[in-house]
Write a protein that binds this DNA or RNA. Structure first.
Length: 111
DNA sequence: GTGCTGACACAGG
DNA sequence: ACCTGTGCCAGCA
């Protein structure tokens, strides 16, 4: 139900088509696996890594945002604490030192 | 339309 | 590991 005052489409399901598709993909990433911003963009065939990052920053709150990271396995500034707590809980593979996710092992193949 | 601003990617140094 | 420049794209003033 959506009487919504049109003031902020953010909380309505009325996101832009692109944003909606980005969130849909992220929502499908299995626990313990991850995707890079670029992976999501490539999967959708639109937006680009930067576009995905923009969407995540604005609308990522409702999806497993910690499963989307940078191409080198690091997490965006300010999100590390919450993200790594999740990785520990999900058993996500980390690189030695624990500062980044081991993409070679944790990257989701899309299946 | 123009001109920023950003949860980005990549090549260099 | 860090910083810089370039290319990229969505959202907003």
């Amino acid at each position: 139900m959506v009487p919504v005052s049109t003031r902020d489409r953010r909380d309505a399901a009325e996101l832009t088509g692109f944003a909606s598709r980005v969130l849909d993909v992220v929502d499908q990433i299995p626990s313990g696996r991850v995707l890079t911003y670029g992976d999501v963009a490539e999967y959708l065939g639109e937006g680009g890594a930067r576009g995905v990052g923009t969407v995540m920053a604005r609308y990522g709150g409702g999806v497993p945002w910690w499963r989307v990271l940078r191409a080198d396995g690091s997490v965006a500034p300010g999100l590390e604490e919450r993200a790594f707590a999740r990785y520990a809980a999900e058993g996500t593979a980390l690189r030695r030192g624990g500062t980044r996710v081991d993409l070679s092992r944790a990257r989701w193949d899309g299946r």
